[in-house]
Amino acid sequence: MNFLIINFFLISILLLTTFYIFKTTSLISIVALTGIFTLVCAAIYVNLDAVDVAFTEAAVGSGISTILMVMAVAKLPEGKKNQLLNLFPSIVLSVSIVIVLMLIIANLPLLGDPNAPIHLHVTPEYIKESKSIFHIPNVVTNILASYRGFDTLGETIVIFTAGLGVIVLLTSNTLNRKTKFKKKVKK
């Protein structure tokens, strides 16, 4: 049951970090807090046996994402004082979502329930076939590369698309140089 207690504390830290992110106005502090946030997430994933996810979260979420944010924030002015608009509608929305979701998740299988449907259907085949066909011990790798390899291709394309989009936005002539395309932008 140790994992439950560790899980409890890590999740609590996560929630606390979220609260601080909400409260903080300095952009660079927010970025730092986001880094902490993702690292705590990675720790939670390790605790929940998702080591591959934890590794990715640490590398991509905490590493690359933080670097990107720092680079962006470096070019931007300091954040202004918290200006919260739409407060009332968003409180109503939040509270109603919380109530609805609480009712629904009460119906979901509890954490770690070995008889949950997801542990009975489809997945057992993966584990069995991993032993017999692939001879690669990491089942996640097997699924990622083979069973759901097409998703992984899609994932690569997502990165490519985003990269291309960033290049277009940051370096393209259409948006950045003082060519005839730039003139028309109304100042």
């Binding site: 997502v158 698309t161 989009g165 393209s172 028309k184």
Partner: peptide, 19 residues
């Protein structure tokens, strides 16, 4: 997501004529 990201990039190209 691929369609969203590519659409967003294409839409932002419209900033060449209107920010």
């Amino acid at each position: 997501e691929i369609s969203a990201l590519s659409s967003i990039s294409l839409i932002s190209l419209g900033a060449g004529t209107n920010r």
